[in-house]
Design a protein around this nucleic acid. Sequence first.
DNA 1: AGGCATATAGTCCACTTGGACTATTGAGCA
DNA 2: TGCTCAATAGTCCAAGTGGACTATATGCCT
Lengths: 195, 195
Amino acid sequence: MSRALTPLQLAVLRLLADEQMHPYEMQQRIREHAIDQVVKVAHGSLYHAVARLAEDGLIEPVETSREGRRPERTVYAITGTGRDEARSRLREFMMRPVQEYPSFGMALSFVSMLPPAEAASLLDRRTVALEAKLAAHDTVVESLIKRGLARINVIEVEFLNSRLRSELDFVRALSEDIKSRRLDWRPPNGGDGEK
Amino acid sequence: MSRALTPLQLAVLRLLADEQMHPYEMQQRIREHAIDQVVKVAHGSLYHAVARLAEDGLIEPVETSREGRRPERTVYAITGTGRDEARSRLREFMMRPVQEYPSFGMALSFVSMLPPAEAASLLDRRTVALEAKLAAHDTVVESLIKRGLARINVIEVEFLNSRLRSELDFVRALSEDIKSRRLDWRPPNGGDGEK
DNA sequence: AGGCATATAGTCCACTTGGACTATTGAGCA
DNA sequence: TGCTCAATAGTCCAAGTGGACTATATGCCT
């Protein structure tokens, strides 16, 4: 394999593992199954990803149909190599945590740029937004379950929710610590004199 | 403001808010203060980010020194606009959670491509890696505290750790559920007949 | 029957990213 | 003293991303 499969490419392979389809249909399935909650899918990038997969022989065009005078659609199918590569990449993602850069972590590391009172009030606003997200996820899960999906097929939402709840706890506690002055607001570098 | 500040640009402004410096020094500070744990800093991207900040008038060159025959270094300082923009962007990051795409969430949503026994074993390997990460963070925090930093300046590591612990709990529980067959491994789409 | 919004299907390009490359200086050591 | 390795300081470019753009068909409202 020349280069490692991106999450989007893996998503494409995952869909094609079930049945062959054309790019636009992939996009629809991705929305239906809420895959766009866990993989960033920019309309433009999808076609690019598919093209590269074809170049590398992980998928191949099987037919080009056309309806009316609309642009023709190329239907792709997964190859044996594609199946193998997909599984192997998936194993990696499962067992090895990849370094991530959550923007809230970044924001926290710069929070001393703001006065404590303001920081606390921003955190309180965040809790509201987080609660809304949790509620939204619950709605999504319900609708997917109703469509007959088993728990294994919505397990990623369980994960995202456990993460959201943990962040919620953290944010609430931090806001309290700030308001009660348990967290002192020393300026950065307050304490080291070396250059 | 033409375009929203990227995390890396915000980091640059954060550093320049304390004192003026040249790009390479930024990189050193970033390593020292472990900012590269929360912001992705690719050597090449830093110079680009600085150039754009200068274009937009958020920072400005104040002097160009040179030592020996090494390439000249341009020292930059933050401007008033820069300070304002940085604070405003920081506020946004604090109060509004941004959509993120954790690759483990993605992997989970595709896990039914693997047999259950293998999935469980991969999850077990993941727990080991997560424990190692937690331990590593503890070491980092200790060393930073020893250098005289207050809790507020390592608060982001607390956040990352609470997140790691929550993931660890989730992964352990999931692995148990799989091994004990509490989670049934129906094939995807098992149950919906509509096309 | 005409008109507007939306779904279908895809291309194109400006901007980022991040890895590879260049080149000089200082430190360690044999 | 000469050699190598690491640190210093930065440029350059191939590849990827995602938003803007094009163009047809269909459903709905009036």
